[in-house]
Design a binder for these strands. Sequence first.
DNA 1: GCGAATTAGTTTCATATGAAACTATCGCGG
DNA 2: CCGCGATAGTTTCATATGAAACTAATTCGC
Lengths: 162, 162
Amino acid sequence: MPSDVKTLEHPTLDLDHFLPYRLSILSNRASDAIAQHYSDRFGLSVPEWRVMAVLGQTPGMSARDVAQRTAMDKVQVSRAVASLVDARRVKRDGDEVDGRITRLSLTAKGRAIYDEVVPLALHLEEVFLAALAPEERKTLNKLMDKLTDRISHLSVIPSQSE
Amino acid sequence: MPSDVKTLEHPTLDLDHFLPYRLSILSNRASDAIAQHYSDRFGLSVPEWRVMAVLGQTPGMSARDVAQRTAMDKVQVSRAVASLVDARRVKRDGDEVDGRITRLSLTAKGRAIYDEVVPLALHLEEVFLAALAPEERKTLNKLMDKLTDRISHLSVIPSQSE
DNA sequence: GCGAATTAGTTTCATATGAAACTATCGCGG
DNA sequence: CCGCGATAGTTTCATATGAAACTAATTCGC
C-alpha cells in the first residue's frame, strides 16, 4: 500500500461537508426534539400532528388538500385521519356537492390539543433559533427558500427533463 | 360563523414558515433526488450508500464506527452491511485483537461503484448549490453548524449517548 | 342519458424500521 | 482461572411505510 492513504486519485466524499447529509441530520434532530414532546403528552405520531397542524390553520380541507399541503402521501393522510377520528380529535363531514370528498376539521377536543401543542412547537423553534441572530434567521430563510425552489424544479418526474 | 375565519385568538402555526417543517421538506427532496440516481443505477438503498460512503472515505471501520459516523443505528448498519457483503461490495475482516469486531472495507467491486457514485453525488450537490452565490454557501454552512450544535446540545436523551 | 375515464379515499401486501432480546467475545476483580 | 458486567453485532417481533389494487362517486365524450 502506498503511504499517502487518504490522497486517492478519485475524489472523496466528506460526509461532514456534504449538504444533503447535513440537512438530513439537522432535520431529523429538529423533528425528533419536537415530536418527543407532543408524542409523550398526547400520543400523537408525526403524521397525525401534521394533519392537526394544517386543520388548525385551515379547517374544512379535504384529505387530498391536507396531503398536498403537508407533502405527505394520501395513504399516510388517510391513516392519520382515521386514527384522529377514532380519538375524536378530528371530524369528517361529507361535502354538500361532491360525494367523494370529506371535509375535515378539528373537534373541540382536537382544538384543545392544537392550542396546547402550537405554543410548545413555537417555543421549541424559538429555542433552536436562539442560536441565530435576527438577521441570521432572515438569511437562513432566504437561503432555504432558494435551495428548496432549486431542488423542486430539478427533481421532477423521471420521464421528464434531465 | 364570523367572517374573519383565519384570525383566531390563539397563535396559529404557519407550516410554510415553521423551521422544522421546512427542513424536513428540503432534506427529503435533496436525499430523494440523489437516491433516485444511485438506486436506479446500482440498486443501493440509502443506508447502504451511507455505509459505502464512509467506508470509501475511511476503510477498516467497525460497524459501530460506521453507525456513529453516519448517525444510523446499529441495526440499520448491520442490515446494510449484510446486504452489501452479499453483493460482494463490502468485505468483513476479523480484528486481530478483538474477536467481537469486524473491520469493514469496500471490495474492488464496491470501490468501483463508490468511484462512480461520488462524482454523481458531488455533481448533484453542486447543482443544488448553484442556487447560491459562493459566500451564501459559506453562510449557509455556518448557520447550519450553529443550528446543529444548538439542537444537539438540547435534545439530551439519556439512552442515546453512545 | 350511458359507458369510459378521473378523482377521493381506503385497503392490501410486501418491505423497512427500531426496540428489545439474544449470541459471542472481551475485560476486570478476586 | 472463574464469573459478572460491558460491548459488538445479529435476530426477532411488532409497527410504519408506500406502491398498487380496490371501492365509490363524479365528470367527460358522444
